[in-house]
Design a protein around this nucleic acid. Structure first.
Lengths: 142, 142
DNA sequence: AATTCTTTACGAAACCATTCGTAACCCAAA
DNA sequence: TTTGGGTTACGAATGGTTTCGTAAAGAATT
């Protein structure tokens, strides 16, 4: 099992995942209240979505008590990674460089944030292993 | 008219847009041949997609001659920007920093690319003083 | 106990993306 | 003129996402 069959959340599902990531394991009621702060959404709609996400393996749930408690099945970073890969393939021809340039270039970014990115770049320099080629495009591992 | 009603291409539509961005204005036949290099797709499927994209305003077409010629209605960068905004909102709570960290962190990136990003960061430092708003980033109200 | 509130489960409707079959049309070649 | 290949237009089937109405069951309140 690699990243092959990692679930690909839809937009609504992501909305819910963000609530779970931010607040931790939550009931349908809580998630729905959070979503309702941003837009109109019925309780059973949120319920159904969570049930489907559960079937898909996107969330796990504790149904030991009557009101079930849902939590993300994947780490935030993992899911975000999948989504970036998706966008990278779909719109940037696989070039992470172009994506980052676009993300930074067309946007206001504070100096503090720029510095944080610089730190990240520096730490990546340290990890550079010159032995290996740079296979940005072939996660073919079987 | 701001970025409000900029079209939001689907995955298939992006596949086609990439062909158009890369090769310039093209006929259905050409686009379909390109897509066929990667996967199985019927001619009329590509045709229909292009027709729908035309209706949506995602592509423009020259139908002065019998075989129509399609071209992107938006610049590559513009569309990519919209898509990043979308992902940013949907999965990263709006934090471009987190997105970039994720894009770079979970991925092998060559030193050359890292250097290019550093250059970008440096040039952004220069622009830090927003007397002159960046020409790319503010298509405000007309 | 009866009522009300909360929750889950289920089914269906509405909508959209994707795919393709079929027909009509034009043009060029036979 | 007829045939055939390439093209556009259109409609429909399929499958997935999103929404919500309704029913059933449990829990709390009266």
């Amino acid at each position: 099992m690699g990243k092959n069959n990692v679930p690909r959340p839809t937009e609504s599902e992501l909305e819910i995942l963000q609530v779970l990531w931010q607040h931790g394991p939550s009931t349908v009621r809580f998630v729905n209240d959070e979503l309702s702060k941003r837009r109109d959404v019925g309780y059973t709609t949120t319920l159904k979505l969570l049930q489907l996400m559960h079937e898909k393996g996107i969330v796990a749930r504790d149904d030991s008590s009557r009101t079930h408690v849902y939590r993300p099945a994947l780490r935030e970073q993992e899911t975000q990674g999948v989504l970036i890969d998706r966008l990278l393939e779909a719109a940037f021809g696989g070039s992470a460089l172009k994506l980052v340039q676009q993300a930074l270039g067309n946007r206001k970014t504070s100096r503090a944030e720029l510095d944080q990115i610089r730190d990240l770049l520096d730490s990546m320099d340290d990890q550079q292993d010159p032995d290996q080629p740079s296979p940005t495009a072939t996660p073919d591992t079987k």
